[in-house]
Amino acid sequence: MKALTLSLLAASLGLTTSLVAVPSANAADKPTLTVYTYDSFNTEWGPGPAIKEGFEKTCGCTVEYVSPGDATETFNRLRLEGGSSKADVLVGLDSNLVADAQKSGLFEPNSVAIEGLHLPIEWDASTFVPFDWGYFAFVYDSNKLSSVPSSFEELINAPDDLKIVIEDPRSSTPGLGLLLWVKDVYGEKAADAWKQLSPHILTVTKGWSEAYGMFLEGQADMVLSYTTSPAYHIAAENKTNYKAAAFKDGHYMQVELAAVTKSSQNKDLANAFLSYLIGPEAQTVIPTTNWMYPVAMPEGEWPASFKDLAKPDKALLFDTEEVPAIRKKALDEWLGALSQ
């Protein structure tokens, strides 16, 4: 009976596996480049498929994506695997995790020729190459919200019925972005700022999808997202009523990074992939699939839907080395302020 149980189990595993397993046609003669990336990068709407196709044309290799969740979960997967990982490249490391990534010792400097990066800040790309970036921002529906706050101060002082929905910093990347944004703007007074903000916070969701979904359903006046979010509604739906509120305080940035792993067996290919990622082909794909600003494209060449977006005057970003300590403190403040 036990043998039967086990063999039935094995049979069912086999059955389901056969439905997933992608037959790698000519795996024998072509090397495989394994790219770890977050899930939305590699859906049919993300930049993944086009980038894979484009790179495979020139590299004589097969690109295989592995996506164990969002950006943080993907990096953590690498940490769990340690030196035995089959990952050659990690795509989509959040700039806020760079210190942790450095400390992990899992990545090595790249040999990519980096020039002409268009970033509003200085960036040392010797190990972690940026491939796109964005600003966190509150998105609103201009058909519904008339007096739009233009700073945190104005948001705090807005009437109580102006509601925002935000993401939990413990389970979501935008949530963490907002946490650092408020900390950057308010410094030591961040806890007070959160306390004052709390009447406006309708709810805090697990991830971006819940929050954005609730906003689109009209539950809240504003949602924490990106300045580039409206570009989707312009390009895909022809709707111009969704806008990002420009804050005078400046906007916290998110820079998405890619790096070669120390354990990679295909380092040349891995470096070539990074070069491709910041090359013209991939950079043209990224804005309208990942809905982030391209990193190596002059503003004049941006897609039409990006040109009218709110442009922050000031870009905010903590020094990556300081982030872990700040994050810990800011999270405690946040919990303390909002738990009362």
Binding site: S198, T203, P324, L331
Partner: peptide, 22 residues
């Protein structure tokens, strides 16, 4: 989380997220 209105309504699972993620 979605309907709880903020970290007042928090679960053990979120604490696990915090411990693992960051």
């Amino acid at each position: 989380l979605a309907l709880g209105g903020g970290p007042k309504a928090t679960t053990i699972e979120l604490a696990i997220y915090q411990a693992i993620r960051y």
